[in-house]
Write a protein that binds this DNA or RNA. Structure first.
Length: 423
RNA sequence: GGGGGAAUGUCCCGAGCGGCAAAGGGGGCGGACUGUAAAUCCGCUGGCAUCGCCUUCGCAGGUUCGAGUCCUGCUUCCCCCA
């Protein structure tokens, strides 16, 4: 469905109306029929997550929010953990084959990933309560010949070769293994299986998943003679075109042990002006009128809107208290120039400080730079500060004399700040 | 099966007569300007260490004082012939 169709479409269901209003919809296989289904009863929908890391990241958040909207509108979300599909590996967006994970790793990843869903969805056994399933449950049960006979006839190589994920590899002259080539079949079978088991009607995902999702829709039509739906979100980029979700220290993780609430809050606080409204709609529950007011704030006042965005987004994931603390810490550090004890803190050896430690070592060990060489360059470029004073000499010995109020404040750039406490 | 070509700084793209830590972009990081923004300008962008040392050009060997560069084998990809 094209943009203009979408703009003029008048949804009957709350779910589709909200999805369109708040900017979640990029493509939908048949939005009118889906809207009709959603206005007549409870729709069961799912999003699949592969277990390639111990935490989901910001790129996954938009789909988590879609599940949340679905549930808010009275429908039933299913979270599918890709225990089975991860054994195969999705080639989408990868230009090289990725390393195979062991089953133990995959299981550990699943256990770790699961915890964030509690924040966004209500689980239980009610009509619109969410639940989690692992696709390994059915995928690992198929025998090879059986799988080929059951599903092979419904897919042509001709069509599979036209998929973006496949073409990327071929165009780049990178190998695409037969293993990975099968990924799209597994995902299609997932959808079919969920349709059979739970009457699942809709699969959602990022725009890069469109092809994979459509495969499932087609398979369901062929095998079950039923209509199922695909709905994808726009690829999230910042207004200046960069891929979203990278910060100084890497990916923006959702699990607290991989990214603190403070850093998470900072991530949202640093949103570009032009993105504030869009992100408020996608990543907070604030009403649209309130968002319209916030994004219209002129000039530097838009910073207030960014704080609201950071507050709301952080509160959803880490709780309201964590958001409040993060905000206070950030305001103290950036607006009043006060060192707050809530800044990220690391311990360091008091004995070492008595003899003195080269600054570069300290900075590298604290994770502010990935090597001592980088710390040295950072210092030369004027980006390294000790207790708020620029320090161009990374070889300087840091000693107990640098401890102020029980800690040494190290900063790499304006935004990466760490307190070192001698113990 | 035969013939020709390709693989480069582990983010990407891409130059590279036998002396190279290896041109140039993009991206990323830092600085200046601002509003913890964008745009713009400047700097940095293999590791360790005080001259210096170590590790990098698909993989494994070889020739050479010296190899990304030459030779042999292997892997993957592209093109032509069968």
């Amino acid at each position: 469905m094209s943009e203009t169709d979408l703009a003029s479409f008048k949804p009957k269901s709350d779910f589709i109306r909200v999805m369109i209003e708040r900017g979640y919809v990029h493509q939908c296989s048949d939005i009118e029929a889906l809207d009709k289904a959603a206005s007549e009863g409870v729709v069961t929908a799912y999003v699949g997550y592969d277990a390639t890391a111990t935490s989901l990241h910001i790129g996954n958040l938009i789909s988590v929010m879609m599940l949340r909207r679905l549930q808010q509108a009275g429908h039933r979300p299913i979270v599918v953990m890709g225990g089975g599909t991860t054994k195969v590996g999705d080639p989408s967006g990868k230009d090289t084959q990725r390393q195979m994970l062991t089953e133990a790793d995959i299981q550990a990843n699943i256990d770790s990933i699961k915890v964030v869903f509690d924040r966004f969805l209500n689980f239980g056994s009610g009509k619109s309560d969410a639940f989690i399933v692992d696709n390994d449950e059915w995928l690992s049960k198929f025998g090879y010949i059986q799988f080929l006979r059951d599903f092979g006839p419904h897919f042509t190589i001709n069509r599979m070769l036209t998929f973006e994920s496949v073409k990327l590899r071929l165009d780049r002259e990178q190998p695409l293994s037969f293993l990975e080539f099968n990924y799209m079949l597994m995902q299609a079978v997932d959808f079919l299986e969920l349709q059979r088991r739970h009457g699942c009607l809709l699969q959602m995902g990022g725009s890069d998943q469109w092809g994979n999702i459509i495969n499932g829709v087609d398979l369901i039509r062929r095998v079950e003679a039923k209509q199922a739906f695909a709905l994808t979100t726009p690829l999230l980029t910042t207004a200046s075109g960069a891929k979203m979700g990278k910060t100084a220290s890497g990916a923006v993780w959702l699990n607290e042990d991989r990214m603190s609430p403070y850093d998470y809050w900072q991530f949202w606080r640093n949103t570009e002006d032009a993105d504030v409204g869009r992100f408020l709609k996608l990543f907070t529950d604030l009403p649209l009128e309130e968002i319209a007011r916030l994004e219209a704030l002129p000039g530097a006042q838009i910073n207030d809107a960014k704080k609201v965005l950071a507050d709301e987004a952080t509160a959803l994931l880490h709780g309201r208290d964590a958001a409040t603390t993060a905000r206070a810490t950030a305001e103290a550090a950036f607006e009043q120039g006060v060192t707050s004890a809530d800044l990220p803190t690391l311990e360091t050896s008091r004995a070492d400080l008595e003899t003195g430690v080269p600054l570069a070592n300290l900075v590298a060990d604290a994770g502010l730079a990935s090597s001592r060489g980088e710390a040295r360059r950072l210092a030369q470029g004027g980006g390294l500060k000790v207790n708020d004073k620029p320090e161009p000499d990374a070889g300087r010995l840091v000693t107990l004399a640098d401890v102020i109020d029980g800690a040494i404040k190290l900063a790499a750039g304006k935004k990466k700040i760490v307190l070192l406490k001698p113990t």
